[in-house]
Design a protein around this nucleic acid. Structure first.
Lengths: 266, 266
DNA sequence: GAGCCCATGGAAGAATATTTACAACCCTGT
DNA sequence: ACAGGGTTGTAAATATTCTTCCATGGGCTC
């Protein structure tokens, strides 16, 4: 299913009918083009044109055969071109979640990809124990009654809602994990994952040490990025999950280190 | 557009995944097959089969490319409730924040009022150390660089993002507070604040025990509400902050217990 | 282990929606 | 009356999805 990703429309003014269509969709949640055409006594094509315009304005979400309402929470970042990267993260998250076994104890690292993983876990009804140092991930899992969500105690480290500090480590040391999902910001010259914040890196290392299986989640945007501090050697990970075909050098490094590779392309 | 009109299915039993799909659609209003396939890491065909079944059971409305919720009155669960008495909570929060001194260590309890307090603290540049068991409050304070935000470790207790469990108490015991802000759900016959969840109440009591000053924050909507478990005697609080004029009985009780009263009316 | 059930995913042709292009129509100003 | 801009409906080609059928593989009983 292709959802249009076009930029904003020049004209923000809505006609009376466009407003009416938008109202109707907002009230009903969604509507098919046929239904709207019937409702407004116009052809399907006309409705389609209106929907296209509303979609460009970010007021409705278009899909094959109709359109649906966009709730306020999502409208914020809807128009951004980061939509592409979001899809990639979705695919990565989907793969990571699919690999999880029932009743496992899983550690989720900090980062947007891990937040996506948390959202997926919340939607899916899998019995799990999740431990995380990410406030947004924990929030996403709040209310998912199949998942027992543990939050590491600590100090909020920044706008990304990550928990850091000495107490975080002590708090984490109580657990043993079946699986830990680790993110990173880039690679070093030897294709080992790197990151910026030493405190966060300590936490990653500790989680990996206390976990049977370490999985590295990195989207394709990080293949050519550098960060100062190496998180761990590549062969410390059982698996690398990404959304785009990595450079040959990384492929070879992964093969050499016996790291499983999951490339979740479209 | 053809909407299927078939009769109901014989089998009303839903698998875990069917329930999850139904929940997701009920929450979101609608979803495309592709999105669901991604979300649950299965093929589009499998999702289609589930949707067909849910459609036959009358639980979702099927359309070309996806499915939508039948329930017209979509629930705006937690976020909706916040809007109800928002202004009152804002006034309460404003007063509570104004009373705080620089460099204090403050405990924030769970609840929408305390989330509002956190938002205000984040906006205002006051140097503070805040400890909380509320995930939304911690999120609101993330990025506020004047505030050192500590999150108690524990298990996420529900959709409100509160932390509970034995570890929460142990985690809290490390701190000593200058001030703790406590919320409650109602009053008992002796005008002592009451609440529903014993685990949360233990936490409140512990925070109060470890704090020089205890402040009770309750909006006017709770004057005539009852909850089963008493949090603490009214005279355990130094101050009661509310947004509407309380009943005479409560006023007298507060005077008798030497509890300061802040009525933040419009 | 053999056989069976059934959930799953793939493939081909049918059904449906979308895009693009274009003609008809209603205004309006000249 | 006529040209121009904008809106709407129709049609053909393209793209996507739906249905149906079948092969696979895991889990179950016998």
């Amino acid at each position: 299913m292709q959802i249009s990703e076009s930029g904003k429309s020049d004209i923000r003014v809505l006609t009376a009918r466009q407003r009416a269509i938008h109202d109707h969709i907002a009230r009903q949640g969604f509507a098919t083009l046929d239904a709207l055409a019937m409702l407004f006594s116009v052809s399907v094509q006309t409705v389609r044109r209106e929907i296209i315009h509303l979609d460009r304005c970010g007021l409705v979400e278009r899909f094959h055969g109709g359109a649906g309402a966009i709730d306020k929470a999502r409208r914020r970042d809807y128009s951004e071109k980061k939509a592409v990267a979001r899809e990639g993260k979705q695919r990565i998250a989907s793969k990571i979640v699919a690999d999880m076994r029932k009743n496992e104890t899983v550690f989720l690292d900090v980062g947007t990809t891990l937040e996506t993983v948390a959202q997926l876990l919340a939607a899916r009804a899998v019995a799990l124990r999740v431990v995380t140092a990410s406030l947004p991930a924990a929030m996403a899992l709040a209310g998912a009654d199949q998942v027992e969500t543990h939050v590491i105690g600590g100090i909020v480290g920044g706008a990304d809602g990550s928990l850091v500090g000495a107490y975080t480590a002590e708090s984490l040391s109580q657990y043993t994990f079946d699986r830990c999902i680790i993110s990173a910001s880039g690679y070093d010259s030897g294709w080992a994952p790197t990151d910026f914040d030493l405190q966060k890196i300590f936490l990653k290392r500790l989680a990996m040490k206390r976990s049977k299986l370490a999985i590295l989640a990195m989207d394709g945007g990080k293949f050519d990025r550098r960060a100062p501090i190496t998180v761990a050697r590549l062969d410390a990970f059982a698996q690398l999950v990404t959304d785009a075909h990595p450079p040959e050098m990384l492929l070879e490094a992964a093969r050499g280190a016996a790291v499983g590779l999951d490339i979740c392309e479209m």
